[in-house]
Design a binder for these strands. Structure first.
Lengths: 216, 216
DNA sequence: ATTACTAAAAGCCGAGTAG
DNA sequence: TCTACTCGGCTTTTAGTAA
């Protein structure tokens, strides 16, 4: 907060309406507003352009779709922690992942932690759901939920995660796994449960499901 | 968003509940989660501690009041741009500022822009209000409002600002001035109007006023 | 296990300045 | 005017390692 950063610039552009229209703003104005040099402002804009966060046209600047999406994601992350929405519901379709969820869930350390903290021994496999509302995924970035701690085996490091109890198709209890490691990948929710969800709920790739993230 | 930063760490701590309680988190876990080195994680924590953003106790971490406040400010800034609250109302008391508002408002360039964009020639002076809800000030960081552009006289640079039409004490039309230059100072709202507000509304230092930020 | 110091490399900043 | 390049200096990072 103390130091001005790229983020401050993006937010500045946003609050000037740069998401909807091209706004006229010189590098020296930006420099003055942020307390940086004109050269740095110029460099930052060049970087943003490279990263596809802004478009420029005749001394005018506009935020791209992508930038707005990312800022919105940040907003929703913060919203998730500051305003506890008690019962977010996601809908989406079943997809077959890379099957690496299977590997992780089969690790004794994770299994033990899940048993302890969620009260069930998970079926060795995850159900991957491509959610319809990827934006709202960030609402899950909040305090509640069981924390699964990281551990090491030899030199390999296995990251921590958070588990949020969930109700799949309004029927089966399970949990959503949110790895701590920030990942900006495809908007997939990984679900674990005691049972084999594909069998129990007769799911195939493309089947529609609902995930109620319950509060306990 | 691409690069992990101090902010990501703060938000991570927040979403793990670090605002309410001490959480156990090693520097190598942080390093893994954020994709940085253990050494950098360590250094960042030390910096945060110096800046009064976290407390540490026996390998445990907790966000301070200050950190939560600053993150909340960021949240409200974003909220202001993503969710247009149509009619924020502020309450507060009149304070006498440094009288530099007076100087700026008397500059011909600013006066002309205000006349053009707000439709009135401002009284040469600003009414400074210390608001009761400093947090909500960030809600004003949104798109709407007239943009006052920056300019230079000789070597002196005069920054840009945004003006939001407002109703003072539910009676007199005026505008709130939000300088573009990000300032983390005292939570003061600067008001301009056609008339001398102190006289017209019979205000003294300490008088209570309401500011309705209207939408047009 | 931890955390955090040192030192060298990598990256970032801004004055000067060109186009 | 404006933007953006170069380059010297400063800052930040990380590997190695001590405690």
């Amino acid at each position: 907060m103390q130091k001005k950063s790229l983020l401050d610039l993006l937010i500045g552009l946003l609050s000037m309406g740069g998401a909807e229209k091209f706004i006229t703003l010189s590098t020296s104005e930006i420099a003055y507003d942020l307390g940086i040099s004109q050269q740095t402002a110029s460099r930052w804009l060049i970087e943003f352009e490279k990263d596809g966060l802004i478009e420029r046209k005749h001394f005018k600047i506009k935020l791209t779709e992508k930038a707005t999406r990312e800022l919105r994601a940040l907003y929703l992350t913060l919203k998730g922690t500051f305003e506890r929405k008690l019962h977010p519901v996601f809908t989406g379709v079943v997809t077959s992942g890379l099957r690496d969820g299977e590997y992780y869930i089969s690790l004794a350390n994770y299994r033990k932690q899940i048993k302890e903290k969620l009260g069930f021994t998970p079926f060795p496999g995850t159900l991957n759901i491509r959610i319809d509302e990827p934006e709202n995924r960030m609402l899950l970035e909040r305090e509640e939920g069981a924390r699964i701690r990281s551990f090491e085996i030899g030199k390999r490091f296995f990251g921590g995660a958070k588990c949020l109890p969930a109700l799949i198709n309004k029927k089966i209890r399970g949990a959503v796994i949110i790895p701590n490691r920030t990942h900006y990948g495809p908007d997939i929710l990984e679900i674990i449960a005691k049972e084999n969800l594909r069998k129990k709920l007769n799911l195939k790739d493309g089947s529609r499901v609902t995930i109620d993230v319950v509060n306990k």
